[in-house]
Design a protein around this nucleic acid. Structure first.
Lengths: 319, 319
DNA sequence: CCATTTATACTCTCCGTGAGCATAAGATGG
DNA sequence: CCATCTTATGCTCACGGAGAGTATAAATGG
């Protein structure tokens, strides 16, 4: 079958050499707004070449990010690896492999004086924020355009299948909204040519769909990161990487809601957090608040040892 | 911050060039035994260089596997990307990036005359099969060795933390067994130097822990694949990729149990499968069986359209 | 006919979860 | 001081899913 791995140490075929790049989705949540680090005026994710001076990809990413922001990353996770056959079209240009990562920090941790900029992630995916109900652009713009696209299919059967996919993915026709389908939604819009990046020589005429585009496949990578994070917060205590050392339960809830793009039942949220003993009281109360003062909590770091691998739950119905 | 992506088209720094390899975990289930394609006498996973003649990594993998086995892959999913700083130690040898994939087929689909060989995956992870209760090697060999390793930690606190990790990961001290922690268990054994691959100049003396080793990090990749598959079957209808066109519910159950490494309640399994309408009766009955003949079912391929993205469930408690 | 094996139909209980009601504790403006 | 607003926090209830057990049916081989 394939060559045996022993032969790996022989020189690679010249046609097999590629460039390895790291691309990072660096997330923070500030005042109930999920943000990501962007460069180039918000049109690209931070990326850079992988230096083989590091032991692993993960450490390479950490070192690189920390050199840029001056602060450590809380949580890092590999997202996906893409192959690009030369950015400049399919020319003979250098092939590259992009290895994308998700990283969690806090906005205030990033030092000043960097080219980095924080952008709200809903700028790129306006249809993903359902905290105030389904966004207007869904019913007003996206649904009709998808319907038109479905109708444009060859046969009636294909038309029905297309529309079914759209309806399921975007929660149309009174279906439930599934906040984890970020990537599927993006790819569906791409397939329907409603995304500038799809750019099928459309000309710059059609207003398409709202949402800021990005370079190359960066918005797809971002969609992958958002989807992964929305799934992860439901069973791993990663939200706390985005929180300050001390916080109220409402602040925690607002962060979760910001990431998930949907609201949760307050009392049930508290019940779940407390019965899992994810947090402990600091003894202090939150100052400068409206309404009854809330207790301050801190994350029980012991849970990382106790259940580093086991699960934790958040009240975001898993479909 | 990082260079802007526009610069990507400039020639890469020479120190940045790498080799891209594909590594595949190809799974089938035959007679209640999960198997994987191996080469080199079962000591390695099939791997090969990534050819940039393909549109994407995924298609490259499919084409490559299908050329080898002569049959299409049912389901393909990217696992993880590793960086190896030269297989021959940390010498100046060619750096490589290994992109690993999980692929599902059926054993009978693979044509004859290939170097490929099917190996039972529990040959590599004997401690992962809990269908007949916890394997003897867990209590007899692994637990004591882990205990010794925990005791070898510097401070009493560290000793306790180490043992807690072991107990959680391996379900010791009367804890529940979590079948998804395949990778964590492998890495823990590695950390404790109980795995030949960890080879800390141990000399070839200690019998270590049962289980066949593999080249380089191939067993780690396999662990990643098993873990991913065990997680996936719980919420996506991927088991059917491993089944023949027609099957009985018991055969389906046996396949699930083989993958998960644990038994499930028969009646509840049937209830769940049927109420989700994942299958439909073929009308025929299974022949050549002991006991009362069972109805034959086939997978309702329509569910892929109906819920390509939504969820399906199997009765494997999610922790 | 009996034991054995598998298939298949029900039932029962427990608990997690969604949802709502009620009360407490602060601030603010009259 | 009181009314009102806002947030915090405690408690209850009903539904549904999941685990587990009981019972019966349909085949086979002695």
């Amino acid at each position: 079958m394939a060559r045996s791995p022993q032969k790996k140490t022989s020189p690679p075929a010249s046609g097999n050499a590629v460039t390895a790049d790291l691309v990072a989705v660096l997330v923070a949540v500030t005042d109930g707004a999920p943000k990501i680090v962007t460069i180039a005026g918000g049109s690209a994710l931070p990326s850079g070449p992988f230096e083989f001076t590091h032991r692993s990809l993960q450490t390479a990413l950490r070192a690189w990010v920390e050199a840029q922001t001056g602060h450590p990353l809380g949580y890092v996770e590999q997202l996906y690896t893409f192959a690009d056959r030369g950015r400049s079209g399919d020319a003979k240009g250098p092939h590259s492999v992009s290895i994308s990562y998700l990283g969690l920090t806090r906005e205030d941790r990033v030092g000043e004086g960097f080219e980095a900029h924080w952008s709200g992630w809903y700028d790129y995916f306006p249809w993903e924020d359902h905290r105030a109900g389904a966004p207007a652009c869904l019913a007003r713009i996206i649904a009709p355009k998808l319907k038109a696209w479905a109708k444009a299919a060859a046969s009636p059967t294909l038309q029905r299948e297309r529309w079914q996919r759209c309806a399921i993915t975007f929660g149309l026709d009174n279906r439930d909204w599934n906040e984890e389908l970020v990537l599927q939604r993006y790819e569906l819009l791409w397939e329907a040519s409603l995304i500038p990046e799809a750019g099928r020589a459309h000309g710059r005429e059609a207003p398409l769909v709202p949402g800021k585009p990005m370079t190359a496949d960066h918005r797809r990578i971002l969609a992958t990161g958002i989807a992964r994070l929305r799934a992860k917060i439901k069973y791993r205590p990663v939200v706390f990487e985005l929180m300050p050392a001390e916080f109220t339960l409402l602040q925690l809830q607002r962060s979760v809601e910001a990431l998930a793009g949907r609201l949760v039942h307050k009392q049930n949220f508290r019940r779940l957090i407390e019965q899992q003993e994810l947090v402990e009281e600091t003894g202090a109360m939150a100052a400068d608040t409206v309404g009854r003062p809330a207790k301050l909590f801190r994350f029980r770091h012991a849970v990382l040892a106790e259940r580093a691998v086991a699960g934790t739950k958040l009240p975001l119905s898993r479909t």
